[in-house]
Design a protein around this nucleic acid. Structure first.
Length: 267
DNA sequence: ACGTCCTCCTGTTCGC
DNA sequence: TGCGAACAGGAGGACG
């Protein structure tokens, strides 16, 4: 369940568990998870200690001694901690063997997630992270408004474009449009400057609320994975009726993604 | 440069 | 009930 708040929750939890742990070796059971040469990745990471875990949008950044690697969980990626005696399950693909005899295991049912070596000091200015737009917390309204003016794409598609804003996924795109009371099909160039300000503010609010709720439910990290309480706070995504007017929530496809909104409240 | 479609995978839900 | 189709929280690349 990795959108920005989920990834932030994973980052905090993982940092508590593996900060200053030394990676002895790596087993790549399904090596397409690793972008680039697998052996190069393993060689670069082995013998290094995890000095920090950062996050940019939906990317986790593992900062090691001499190098770093990014990890994108995509749809289903998770990290488990287990002892070597625990049988590896069929969806655990990358195993980091730690010096303290624990294993950090990357699990991903759909195998969409990716890991990639990056420079420890300049990863922000190199691909793929250099293509990302700002997180909503740091976005400049004028710059976004200029981008909006140039696009006829539905606002919801723009919210999902990580070059526009970074960290928003399908659920939050739906929720942001709802709180803005804006129809998700509205072309970008129809938004006013005032609505752009509001969009940035609402996006940041929703992500922050979700981070707070996500942080409250990390108890079963190694067994059940992570499921944030924000799921109970959703207004339209996957919902039947509008919390405000009780009319049925519409479901359509925008850019092939499931889109939920209230035709009565969102114009 | 921009927008649309396809692809990577597996598991679950939906509809006939 | 059974079975194939559609869909699921993502993003990068091909193509027009």
């Amino acid at each position: 369940m990795p959108e920005l708040p989920e990834v932030e929750t994973v980052r905090r939890t993982l940092k508590n568990l593996v900060l200053n742990a030394k990676i002895i070796n790596v087993t790549a059971i399904y090596d397409k998870i690793i972008s680039g040469d697998t052996n190069k990745f393993i060689d670069a990471v082995s013998g290094q200690t995890i000095r920090d875990i950062g996050r940019v949008g939906k990317y986790l950044i593992f900062i090691l001694d001499d190098i770093a690697f990014i990890s994108h969980l995509r749809m289903e990626g998770k990290y488990n901690i287990a002892g070597p005696e625990v049988e590896i399950n069929k969806h655990e693909h990358i195993i980091f063997h730690l010096a303290d005899n624990r294993e950090l295991r990357y699990q991903d049912t759909r195998k969409f997630g990716r890991m990639e070596l990056v420079s420890r000091d300049t990863y922000l200015s190199e691909p793929p992270l250099n293509k990302l737009g700002p997180e909503p917390f740091f976005a400049d309204a004028e710059i976004l408004y200029e981008k909006l003016k140039r696009s006829r794409l539905p606002i919801k598609s723009l919210l999902l474009d990580q070059r526009f804003l970074n960290g928003i996924g399908n659920i939050y795109a739906n929720e942001i449009c709802y709180r803005l009371k804006i129809d998700p099909r509205t072309p970008g160039n129809r938004l006013t400057e005032k609505q752009t300000d509001e969009l940035i503010k609402v996006a940041g609010e929703i992500l922050n609320e979700a981070i707070e709720l996500g942080g409250t439910t990390i108890h079963s990290f190694t067994t059940g994975g992570i499921s944030g309480l924000f799921q109970t706070k959703l207004s339209v995504h996957g919902q039947k009726s509008c919390p405000s007017c009780q009319s049925p929530v519409a479901k359509i496809a925008i850019g092939g993604r499931g889109t939920y909104f209230c035709k009565n409240c969102q114009k």
